[in-house]
């Protein structure tokens, strides 16, 4: 199951996912190269989160194949906990461990999963907190932080496991507008450092500037994918155009009839 996959980080083939009778993902294909940033856009309910969650098996696919860094996750015999260690996930609602201080949020999985010693785990944690600009919050409880700070801690927590791929599910959607910038700056920096990233987002500006590839999803299909300037700047499909018109120009809902 481990093969030489060259520079491919994530390969999704014929991915299907249903919840009961509801077909959420009908047939998804996607190849992400190492170091690529892929932004996934699309209307609410189009299956963006579900697809992202399939990539670390928080949702079990109904069909198809997912290979991450040479390991086929859809193989029934795969060690899923081992595979997930290499895939970082950042949630819309942060999901920091509310009973643990920031530093412990960053060290607990390093210690219990990677079996790192206390000193090493804390060193890694502090380095990542510095990366997201929150070194001074190491001893705070999550509840004492703003949403933007919590999300940056969540990113640092994922980074502390030294992931090869990072998944972001609308990381800024739950934030007050003035806090969005800090989180996007951290993600931009991460992209510059060469992290492979799959980002579900409604931040078109970010997608335009940072994404190597943009995916437009609707109704469980990838309707359109390609370079950001093409998919966002010059969409070919009618549904993409409609969606972008609404997102980029939310005051004119004329086409939404």
């Amino acid at each position: 199951m481990t093969g030489s996959t060259g520079s491919t980080a994530v390969e999704i083939t014929g991915l299907k996912k249903s919840f009961g009778d509801l077909e959420v993902l009908r047939d998804i294909d996607l190849v992400v190269q190492r170091g690529e940033v892929v932004c996934i856009i699309g209307p609410s309910g189009s299956g963006k989160s579900t697809m992202l969650r399939c990539v670390n098996l928080l949702e079990e696919p109904t069909g198809g194949k997912i290979v991450v860094e040479g390991v086929e996750l859809t193989d029934p015999d795969v060690d899923i906990d081992a595979a997930r260690r290499r895939i970082g996930m950042v949630f819309q609602s942060f999901n920091l461990f509310s009973h643990l201080r920031v530093l412990d949020n960053l060290t607990i999985a390093q210690r219990k999963v990677l079996k790192r010693g206390k000193a090493e785990a804390e060193e890694v944690a502090l380095r990542n907190l510095e990366r997201v600009g929150l070194l001074d919050k190491a001893h705070a409880l999550p509840g004492q932080l703003s949403g933007g700070q919590q999300q940056r801690v969540a990113i640092a927590r994922a980074l502390s496991m030294d992931p090869e791929v990072m998944l972001f599910d609308e990381p800024t959607s739950a934030l007050d507008p003035e806090l969005v910038g800090d989180v996007l700056a951290v993600m931009r920096q991460l992209a510059d450092e060469g992290m492979t990233m799959l980002v579900v987002t409604h931040e078109m500006q970010f997608a335009r500037e940072v994404a190597d590839k943009v995916l437009f999803m609707d109704g469980g299909y990838v309707v359109e994918q390609g370079p950001a300037e093409r998919v966002i700047g010059d969409p070919q499909h009618e549904r993409t155009k409609t969606f972008l018109a609404r997102v980029l120009n939310p005051n004119h809902l004329g086409t939404d009839a």
């Binding site: 997930r84 970082g88 461990f97 509310s98 999985a109 990677l114 994922a158």
Partner: peptide, 17 residues
């Protein structure tokens, strides 16, 4: 909250851990 378990699992923790 469900998200706490999801965060833990996505960091590679087993169900028991």
């Amino acid at each position: 909250p469900k998200g706490q378990v999801e965060a833990a699992r996505s960091l590679g923790m087993s169900q028991g851990r």
